[in-house]
C-alpha cells in the first residue's frame, strides 16, 4: 500500500459540493478542456504526468442491483486524481505558488475549501480530503514527465539522422551529426531511481 512508485506519486482526493454548484464546475471544466491556452500553466508546471477531475453526481454512483443499497446523498462529489513527480509538499507548494487562481476556480465550489493561498491552510485541506492508494503501477517508474518529453525528442532526432545517414559523405555526416547532438544536448539526463521522499 503506497502512494508512490518510482518517480511518481498517486494522489486521490474527494470533496463534497452542493449540487447546484456542480453545474458551475462542469462549465469551468468544459471551458478549460476546450481552450487549450488555459492549460498552459499545467503544461509548464512540467511535473504532472496525468491528472483528472471527475464529477460524481449524487445519484450517479454506480448501482448494480444484486442487493447493493442505493446511495442516498445530499452532496455531489468532486474526485481528483493526479500522477505527479516529486514530493507532496513540492507539488502543493507549486500549485499554490503559480496556479492559485486556477485551483480556486475549480475547488472553491467544494465545501470548506479555504482557498489555495496561504499554502498551509490549503495543505491542511488537501491532507484532510486525500485518501490513500492501495496499488500503484507505472510502466516507467524510472522516468518523470520531463524525462519522457526528453526521450521523445531524442528518439525523433535520432530517427531523422538514421534516415539521412546512409546518403551522406563522411563530411556531410559529421555536420548532420553535430546538428543532431545540438538538438538532443539539453535532453540527455539519466533516468533512474527517485530521491527519498520527505
Amino acid at each position: 500500500m503506497s502512494n508512490i512508485n518510482g518517480k511518481v506519486y498517486a494522489m486521490n482526493a474527494i470533496t463534497p459540493m452542493k449540487p447546484w454548484k456542480t453545474w458551475v464546475v462542469r462549465a469551468i471544466f468544459f471551458t478549460l478542456g476546450h481552450v487549450k491556452s488555459l492549460q498552459q500553466d499545467l503544461i509548464n508546471l512540467s511535473f504532472i504526468e496525468f491528472a483528472r477531475w471527475v464529477v460524481v453526481p449524487r445519484q450517479r454512483f454506480p448501482y448494480l442491483g444484486n442487493g447493493q443499497v442505493k446511495e442516498d446523498l445530499k452532496y455531489d462529489y468532486l474526485l481528483f486524481f493526479s500522477n505527479f513527480n516529486g514530493t507532496w509538499n513540492q507539488y502543493i507548494d507549486a500549485f499554490s505558488a503559480v496556479l492559485s487562481n486556477g485551483l480556486n476556480l475549480v475547488w472553491r465550489w467544494s465545501e470548506k475549501f479555504p482557498g489555495s493561498v496561504p499554502v498551509t491552510l490549503f495543505k491542511e485541506y488537501i491532507a484532510r480530503v486525500q485518501f490513500d492508494t492501495d496499488y500503484y503501477f507505472t510502466a516507467y517508474p524510472h522516468a518523470t514527465a520531463n524525462d519522457l518529453k526528453s526521450a521523445h525528442i531524442v528518439q525523433a532526432s535520432l530517427d531523422s539522422l538514421v534516415q539521412r545517414a546512409p546518403n551522406c559523405t563522411p563530411e556531410e555526416f559529421r555536420s548532420a551529426y553535430l546538428n543532431f547532438v545540438i538538438q538532443v544536448q539539453a535532453h540527455l539526463g539519466d533516468t533512474g531511481e527517485a530521491p527519498v521522499i520527505f
Partner: peptide
C-alpha cells in the same frame, strides 16, 4: 501507462 487501484471507504 499508469494505473491505480484504491479502496474508497467512504466520502470524507
Amino acid at each position: 501507462h499508469l494505473a491505480r487501484l484504491v479502496v474508497m471507504d467512504d466520502v470524507i
